[in-house]
Design a protein around this nucleic acid. Sequence first.
DNA 1: TATGAATGAGACTTCATTCAT
DNA 2: AATGAATGAAGTCTCATTCAT
Lengths: 223, 223, 223, 223
Amino acid sequence: MANTRRPASQRSTSQRSTRKRRADGEESRRRILDAAAEIAGERGYDGTSIGEVSARSGLPASSIYWHFANKDELIAAVIERSFERWLAAVELPGPEVGDAGERVRTMAVGLAKALLDTPDFLRLGLMLALERRPAEPTARTKFLQVRQITRERIAEAIRELTPELPESSVRALTTYAMAGADGLFIAHELDGDDTDLVALFELHARSLSDATARELDTHRSNP
Amino acid sequence: MANTRRPASQRSTSQRSTRKRRADGEESRRRILDAAAEIAGERGYDGTSIGEVSARSGLPASSIYWHFANKDELIAAVIERSFERWLAAVELPGPEVGDAGERVRTMAVGLAKALLDTPDFLRLGLMLALERRPAEPTARTKFLQVRQITRERIAEAIRELTPELPESSVRALTTYAMAGADGLFIAHELDGDDTDLVALFELHARSLSDATARELDTHRSNP
Amino acid sequence: MANTRRPASQRSTSQRSTRKRRADGEESRRRILDAAAEIAGERGYDGTSIGEVSARSGLPASSIYWHFANKDELIAAVIERSFERWLAAVELPGPEVGDAGERVRTMAVGLAKALLDTPDFLRLGLMLALERRPAEPTARTKFLQVRQITRERIAEAIRELTPELPESSVRALTTYAMAGADGLFIAHELDGDDTDLVALFELHARSLSDATARELDTHRSNP
Amino acid sequence: MANTRRPASQRSTSQRSTRKRRADGEESRRRILDAAAEIAGERGYDGTSIGEVSARSGLPASSIYWHFANKDELIAAVIERSFERWLAAVELPGPEVGDAGERVRTMAVGLAKALLDTPDFLRLGLMLALERRPAEPTARTKFLQVRQITRERIAEAIRELTPELPESSVRALTTYAMAGADGLFIAHELDGDDTDLVALFELHARSLSDATARELDTHRSNP
DNA sequence: TATGAATGAGACTTCATTCAT
DNA sequence: AATGAATGAAGTCTCATTCAT
């Protein structure tokens, strides 16, 4: 009842500030995400332990839980940020220059370079995506969503270049386009840096152009 | 009261089936490998726990250690057996029939079918391969070896078909061949069963034939 | 991105209501006590966490520590307020009307109704009281004090009604009176609302009257 | 493998077998239950930590999980064993001797003595029962079941003694009987050992007899 | 050819509390 | 009159592994 207008806890004069000088949430959050991205990119979902994130970020484990509700949300945030960076790294093709094949090749080179710059995104994403655990991690869902969006963009680009193409062909070509990208990325990851990713993406672009042309031919003769 | 001799966390879990009580080493080993393969195919290396393998195989954890030295060797054995099955599933192309393109296409279809039959091999393998942990699991090494052998076979096939091709081209084409296979497998895993893996592998075979031809042309004009 | 300033575990939890942002100490204190009373009444001392109080009150944990020195004092304050409300809910018997038995019955009914109105007080109190932890929480002490005062009042009432009764009998009857109240409350809590608390308290009042009369007889013949 | 046959006189005396000489599951289980019962009887469900059980039983926390699937099952097992012991402690009334009142009194004294002997059962049970947490612990359910059985037995005894009594009266009297027992137990727990539990239970038995007689009268005149 | 029982280390997460602002 | 951010300790539980039998 008698409410003394004072903080309920009494103040001590000893000022041993082992504590951080100034709490900076944004900075801490960033450090946690950096550490988590690093580890998750190396070891996948299960291999990423909060303890290790704590060790690498320099923040105690309990602090991680101030910023992220749980491990699931942390990894999901990693994927999210990773995707944003990857998107930023992709050089969007400039104004429509050259023929269809030329444009496809330009896009392919852009993708290859982005993958070289920000490989964590796809590496972690693929690790997550290949898993089939009963309780699907949020991060996996997030990656699959992003992937779906990417698919849709590719399909749109194909439709724009070859409007006559039937939808089934568009879908097959989209799948093939993405498969090449995924596969070449993996090749580069596994077989080391001597894999010339840019050249191989150009090769893939050429394959796609040719395949598109073939599909178009088939469609025209078998309408 | 009913004190069955299992860890408490596994008591009262309905067993897979009433099992024969006769001790049979080969059978036990098989059951452990089956369980481990199932789990590892779903959850990767870190996600596979001895406890879960014990639960799914119906054998106590200590029995797993009678058959395998440790988790690492268990997963390595999974990869090994998985690879053997995958090899057996690949329909080797019969005696040289048809032209080069035809032969490539036949091989591609064989690969696609094998992947559909025994997908665990590549799924687990890729999960392992994408990881970059400091202490490399034996299973990963094993998978990479197997992969290397496969690469070598593909390269050999290419060399045989087009002996003139310079080694750099052979390597690029090999990488591209494997990349397509990996990527298409992933597409099929992620985008569901409506991805026509066989058709896409045929498409890829065609791309490879064309690319090989192009490389040959380039080489002939720029010797 | 939307970085509301709450611990991550509480973000996106739908707030109880849109709250006025004006700082109002009295109102905040009330909200904290409400939340704490709710939780402590459900889960007892150990089961009441500051985090949960924070979540249910909508105030950050640190704010709770502005109003209360620590968890112990918070729960003590809960007991205190709860007791005040309970006291207010007890309908004090009017001026001496009717015979002794009648008056006892009226008091009993008053108690029963108060228990129905403010059950948290006794529920939490009993939970605390039954514990025997080494470091006795302030709240427990507080409840036991309140209980002792109540005992004293009952004893006083008995002495007033039957001044001849020896102290040992007064004590026994007091204990029995309280025991009945406690026990009937528990019965009502456990066995649901179909327990007619008022009728049972009347039954108990009658038992007490009779027991008192018996004790008196015994005393008169064995002085 | 290397056969370390040695004369007994040369065997090293430092026999640091940190491991238990012989694993004895039954004994360990008992020790864990003893420790858990002790703590749970003192501090309730939430107040019982596996760490403390580990410390008091001398077994590592992980060993506790070999014997019990989780904390919930551990506490449930405590209640179960506790109830068995309590049942064994209750002296069942001998062959029907004396009148109804006499028999009721004998039963009451038996109950009182059992409560004095094995107080943990009811103390923990009541603590659990008073809680209202969303996820009901198994132990609480178990206690409520046991309590229901006890109620049924009391009701049966009342029906046997006074077969004419309508069911509503039987139910009220049963509730009152249990309430007295609960309340007196609490009184004894809180107000110390100077509460003469046996005498108070006899008082309660008398109240019950009288109340039963009254109910019977009421029923006979208002059939 | 197993397996019941155990165990230290470490997993994720919550705890009560602090303090600079 | 608060509160964002942090933190060490402790919470429950799982981990891979061992070993006597």
